[in-house]
């Protein structure tokens, strides 16, 4: 019985894969709308112009995917559950007072600690540079935010709870909300100034929105969008890493929600 079923599954996968490969083999690429994107200059970084000006609304959606994913991971680990008896079964009482229970892996050697500290500072600095220069150099909010978050994660892995680079989880939560709200509200501002949602306005009453040299005066709100996306990605990725590595906060959440239900 099961071998027949396997056969059917194998054949249907084969047909499916073959049809996809067949259509790939007959690929004719039509440049289409990309020519429009290349012929109209907005900022020196053309990718950034597409992401934050031509298709800025898609970027908002991409940000919200990350926001929702982080929210759902909070829920998985016990925020606002209607019933958390199952989660309590899964998580037992904490074994140590350490904030992050990475200690079972053993302490890292001083070499790693010595290298990780300056490295994470460098990564944070590079990340900030990438975010702020997103509209003129390769990079942008997403990449820069991910760089800062990886510096943070590196430091946590090397030092555990005594990490010199530390964000509180409530602070991270607020920062993420601030990033997403900032993006949404910049869009609303564009709606009131230019008439369209996420309109890229370069000046208000003659005052330039983004003071810059003459060549990149058209950047308008793009640098600000970069910054809010950077904040949001940094907070989102840090929270995700933090939730996966830290049990104590989860257990605290569970006991707090119990008090509320009683």
């Amino acid at each position: 019985m099961s071998s027949k079923r396997d056969l059917v599954v194998a054949i249907s996968f084969f047909i499916f894969g073959a049809s996809i490969l067949y259509s790939l083999a007959n690929m004719h690429v039509n440049p289409g709308v990309n020519i429009v994107y290349l012929n109209h200059y907005i900022v020196p970084n053309y990718v950034c112009a597409i992401i934050f000006d031509w298709r800025a609304y898609d970027t908002l959606g991409e940000c919200l995917v990350l926001v929702v994913a982080v929210m759902v991971s909070w829920i998985v680990f016990g925020k606002s559950l209607y019933d958390n008896s199952y989660l309590k079964e899964v998580f037992h009482a904490p074994e140590s007072d350490d904030y992050i229970t990475l200690q079972r892996w053993g302490d890292y050697t001083p070499i790693i600690k010595f290298l990780a500290y300056p490295m994470s500072i460098l990564m944070v600095a590079l990340g900030i540079l990438t975010v702020l220069g997103g509209h003129i150099t390769p990079g942008g909010g997403f990449q820069g935010g991910a760089l800062i978050a990886s510096g943070f994660i590196l430091s946590i892995i090397a030092f555990g709870s005594k990490s010199p680079l530390w964000f509180d989880h409530k602070f991270l939560e607020r920062m993420e909300a601030l990033g997403a709200l900032g993006y949404l509200l910049l869009g609303v501002a564009g709606m009131f100034i230019g008439g369209y949602y996420l309109f890229n306005f370069t000046q208000i009453n003659g005052i330039p929105v983004f003071p810059a040299p003459k060549d990149i005066i058209t950047a308008g709100i793009i640098p600000y969008l970069n910054i809010v996306v950077g904040l949001k990605v940094l907070a989102g990725l840090s929270t995700a890493a933090f939730l996966l590595s830290c049990e104590k906060v989860i257990i605290e959440k569970i006991s707090k929600s119990e008090e509320k239900l009683e």
Partner: peptide
Amino acid sequence: NLYVFFEIISIVQAGLVFLSG
């Protein structure tokens, strides 16, 4: 744009189910 929001909705649905715990 449709795909982006399609992705959000699939995560949201899973999250709404997780709420019952």
